[in-house]
């Protein structure tokens, strides 16, 4: 094991330029993937904020008793889809309208605005079908006059969300494949440069596991360094955009570590495949 580490580190020392080139290539492939991930993450975050505003409003029949309202509040709050429910009295509805639509302040009159239940939904229950079903259920209360939830808006939002998930997954796979291909060929080049060493190790009777070890260590080190560099570059981009353009969110530490781990794994498997090819090869004729 110590010899394997020494050989792996020797490879860095002997061919520093090639090693740097390898690490940089890995870093930039993962950086491209990371940037894509960052965009996807921020779109998801933005959509989540918008989705948070999906609400159902149930208007009450004029003169509904306070007991009925309290019972309804308790009932609705117990629905699994509901995160919170609140009562908006005609007075507070009026105050809110006056505040939000200041230019029409004079036309509002307490008698025009009914009281309502304001219902916010839990995550995962904001798709058009679920919202509609909830609205229908609430509409069955005798003291509910009308239920509104911006049906078209919710449907559109949901379509955008579905589309962004599909596009994100598709593009993510493409980016990941490109990264795997580029990293694979980088590592293959590094292994090819040391084909003579592999040949000699086999010639003198080193076991396959022994031959593989330095290359696997080298692959993991290069991959992890490339991955860390990619995370750093992505973070710099995030900071730059946040300062210059608009606030963006960054990966959680766990997600960022996953990037480094992905680099290490790609390095590991890339080396495994490349060395395997040389281990199966028969030596050339003199």
């Amino acid at each position: 094991m110590r010899l394997a580490f020494r050989e792996a580190l020797l490879a860095f020392r002997r061919t520093p330029l090639m090693s740097m080139l390898g690490i940089t290539t890995i870093a930039f492939s993962l950086f491209a993937f990371g940037l894509f991930g960052l965009v996807a993450l921020n779109i998801r975050e933005a959509l989540r904020l918008v989705e948070d505003r999906v609400e159902v409003r149930a208007f009450l029949v004029d003169g509904t008793s306070e007991e009925a309202i309290a019972a309804a509040l308790g009932d609705v709050a117990a629905f699994p889809e509901v995160r919170e429910v609140g009562y908006v009295s005609p007075d507070s509805a009026l105050a809110r309208s006056r505040e939000e639509l200041a230019e029409f302040r004079d036309v509002f009159d307490a008698s025009v605005l009914p009281g309502s239940l304001e219902i916010r939904l839990r995550e995962g229950f904001r798709d058009p079908v679920t919202v509609q079903a909830l609205a229908d259920r609430i509409a069955t209360y005798p003291f509910i006059d009308d239920v509104r939830f911006g049906q078209e808006w919710v449907a559109k939002l949901y379509r955008v969300r579905t589309l962004s998930v599909l596009a994100g997954t598709g593009l993510g796979i493409v980016f990941a494949l490109v990264a795997v291909l580029i990293i694979g060929s980088t590592i293959r080049m590094a292994v090819l440069a040391r084909a003579r060493e592999i040949e000699i190790m086999r010639l003198v009777g080193a076991t396959n596991a022994f031959v593989r070890m330095p290359f696997l260590i080298e692959g993991v080190l290069k991959g992890a360094l490339g991955g860390a560099l990619a995370v750093g570059l992505t973070w710099l981009t995030h900071t730059g955009v946040s300062r210059a353009l608009f606030e963006t969110v960054f990966f959680t530490p766990a997600q960022a570590s996953l990037g480094v781990l992905a680099g290490a794994l790609l390095g590991f498997f890339g080396s495994l495949v490349s060395v395997g090819r040389h281990l199966r090869a028969v030596w050339k004729d003199a």
Binding site: I200, R202, L203, G205, T207
Partner: peptide, 23 residues
């Protein structure tokens, strides 16, 4: 196949082009 290294350790092999590690 996995026992071939055991045999190779008991053989010496030399080629026309020497196959030394030049570095």
């Amino acid at each position: 196949d996995r026992d071939i290294p055991q045999l190779r350790r008991r053989l010496g092999i030399v080629f026309q082009d020497f196959r030394l590690l030049t570095d």
